[in-house]
Deep mutational scan, measured.
Amino acid sequence: LRLEVKLGQGCFGEVWMGTWNGTTRVAIKTLKPGTMSPEAFLQEAQVMKKLRHEKLVQLYAVVSEEPIYIVTEYMSKGSLLDFLKGETGKYLRLPQLVDMAAQIASGMAYVERMNYVHRDLRAANILVGENLVCKVADFGLARLIEDNEYTARQGAKFPIKWTAPEAALYGRFTIKSDVWSFGILLTELTTKGRVPYPGMVNREVLDQVERGYRMPCPPECPESLHDLMCQCWRKEPEERPTFEYLQAFL
């Protein structure tokens, strides 16, 4: 395994491009020591290896001592969030954005069929390849993070704006909380990567959403798509659509 080009840095580690087995181009995620327990990670990795779908980033291998390494397929255009905010983002029109959403829903419909939960679905965790191919990455890892700023769910590192209220408040993460996050991801797509709930801080978002506030229809977004977002944001988790439905609708 060779680490060649550093692609990015996040709160919990770095991402590199490299070569595996001398020939395969891969992405390598390294986790800061202390982010998660190697034992817990190894268990999760076994499950992650079983998830194989064309719209999920394929896991190739893991190094399960500290520092933990995760070796996955390489996606040339990086994260969907950076892609939307970058040069190419300007030229993306609604049909392409909807197609990308459908690809993500397709990957998540598979996660749904496998009775698995992602827990951290957002544009930053979707990767883009050639020809606007989108794949879901980092599934299941969020559960293992041991950082206090994260586990408190009120901490600075927790993605509260993407998280369903029952998950943020009571830790009830299910495929239905993933559906909520998918609704937020749809706003990221239609606004080219704007942060959700602009002008609001995490605490406010939690309070307002509890009181029934939902983001309005983004500019140039059809009402039918906003309606779909609002279905994803129904207060009762069981009233939210399935990913199978979302995939078919898109």
Rank of each mutant, 00 (worst) to 15 (best):
E4S: 15
E4I: 15
V5T: 15
L7T: 15
F12A: 03
F12H: 04
G13S: 03
M17T: 07
M17L: 13
T19K: 11
W20S: 10
W20T: 14
T24V: 07
A27F: 01
I28N: 04
K29I: 04
T30G: 13
P33F: 14
P33W: 14
L42S: 03
A45K: 03
A45R: 03
V47E: 00
M48R: 02
R52A: 14
Q58F: 10
L59V: 03
Y60A: 12
A61W: 15
A61L: 02
S64M: 05
E65R: 12
E66V: 14
P67N: 05
P67Q: 04
I68K: 05
Y69F: 13
I70A: 03
V71G: 03
T72N: 03
K77Q: 10
S79M: 04
L80P: 03
L81P: 05
L81G: 11
D82K: 06
F83R: 07
G86E: 10
E87I: 14
G89V: 10
Y91D: 12
Y91I: 08
R93P: 06
R93Y: 10
R93K: 09
L94E: 04
V98G: 07
D99N: 15
A101R: 02
I104R: 01
A105F: 04
G107E: 02
G107F: 01
M108F: 03
M108E: 07
M108S: 14
A109L: 15
E112L: 15
E112S: 15
E112M: 15
R113Y: 14
M114L: 04
Y116Q: 02
Y116D: 01
H118T: 01
R119Q: 01
D120R: 03
R122V: 00
A123G: 10
V128F: 04
G129D: 14
E130T: 12
L132V: 08
C134A: 12
G140S: 01
A142D: 01
R143F: 03
L144D: 09
D147I: 06
N148H: 08
E149V: 15
T151G: 03
A152I: 04
A152N: 03
G155P: 06
K157C: 11
F158T: 02
F158P: 02
F158C: 05
F158S: 01
P159F: 02
W162S: 02
W162Y: 03
A164D: 15
A164S: 13
P165K: 06
G171R: 08
F173S: 07
T174A: 11
I175R: 15
K176N: 14
W180V: 00
S181E: 03
I184M: 05
L186N: 03
T190A: 11
T191M: 08
K192H: 07
G199A: 13
M200Q: 08
V201P: 05
V201E: 13
V201F: 09
E210P: 13
G212F: 05
Y213I: 06
Y213C: 06
R214S: 06
C221A: 08
C221D: 03
E223N: 10
C230W: 10
Q231Y: 12
C232R: 03
W233E: 10
K235L: 07
K235N: 12
P237A: 10
E239D: 05
R240L: 01
F243T: 14
E244D: 11
E244C: 10
E244I: 14
Q247I: 15
F249L: 10
L250A: 09
